[in-house]
Design a protein around this nucleic acid. Structure first.
Length: 221
DNA sequence: TACCAGGAGAAAA
DNA sequence: TTTTCTCATGGT
């Protein structure tokens, strides 16, 4: 008896039923999301929170604050998030771009494809970071492809593990054909699923994906 | 002690 | 064009 291949929509429904509404992105302002998108690169979110708190204490959590900050002062705030020298340059560049472009209201006038191209021209902003910003700052309907997303769909045998970023994104967007809220929640749920339910457990305990969701050595599914 | 975490850019092959 | 290396702290 053959088992039907799960669809991305089914996966979303199961994750939502298991974990509930996530309400991402965890930030107090649009600009804080922008900052978090850079700081989370290659780093656990817990460390990002410490760096953002340090920026807030130093009154640097604004575009003007970041542009005017000295490199050593900025790097010191970012130390907990790792790669602090790299991220200091990237944040400075992104804040400079944000100001030069006229801020949120002006940027929000651009079509999604144009805005994505503009973001990708900023040093330190790659496809995932650009899509984080498009989805969570500008509320555009794009699917963010991160390491968790790749692993989940690869282990569900719905996509090759080495699929190109744009190919996986296009497939998910064409399959889901969803609104912003679904892309927002789906990404958050995938991260929740990977970080909470599948850590240090032989199988997924909290969702109906468990039969197809064996956890590998790295603890992620 | 070793490995990994919500990547991206530069250099090498 | 694809692969490898580098950036770095903190938690498990």
């Amino acid at each position: 008896m053959s088992r039907r291949r799960p669809t991305p929509r089914w996966v979303y429904t199961q994750l939502l039923a298991a974990y509930g509404f996530q309400g991402w992105w965890p930030a107090d302002s649009r600009f804080e999301i922008l900052v978090g998108a850079i700081l989370t690169q290659g780093t656990a979110w817990h460390n990002v929170e410490q760096a953002i708190a340090a920026l807030r204490r130093a009154r640097l959590l604004s575009a003007r604050g970041l542009v005017d900050a000295s490199a050593p002062a900025l790097a010191e705030c970012l130390r907990p998030s790792g790669y602090f020298n790299v991220k200091a340059r990237r944040l400075h560049g992104l804040a400079r771009w944000y100001l030069d472009a006229g801020g949120y209201r002006r940027l929000a006038r651009h079509a999604t494809a144009r805005l994505r191209a503009m973001l990708l021209e900023v040093h330190g902003v790659g496809p995932e970071t650009a899509d984080d910003i498009l989805l969570y700052v500008f509320q555009r309907p794009v699917f963010v492809i991160d390491a968790y997303t790749r692993r989940l769909f690869a282990r569900l045998e719905l996509a090759p593990a080495d699929a190109r970023y744009e190919d996986l994104q296009r497939w998910l967007q064409e399959t889901l054909h969803a609104e912003v809220q679904v892309y927002n929640e789906f990404h958050a749920l995938i991260v929740r699923h990977a970080k909470v339910a599948c850590r240090r457990k032989p199988v997924c305990g909290g969702c109906r994906l468990r039969a197809r969701c064996a956890v590998g050595a790295n603890g992620l599914s």
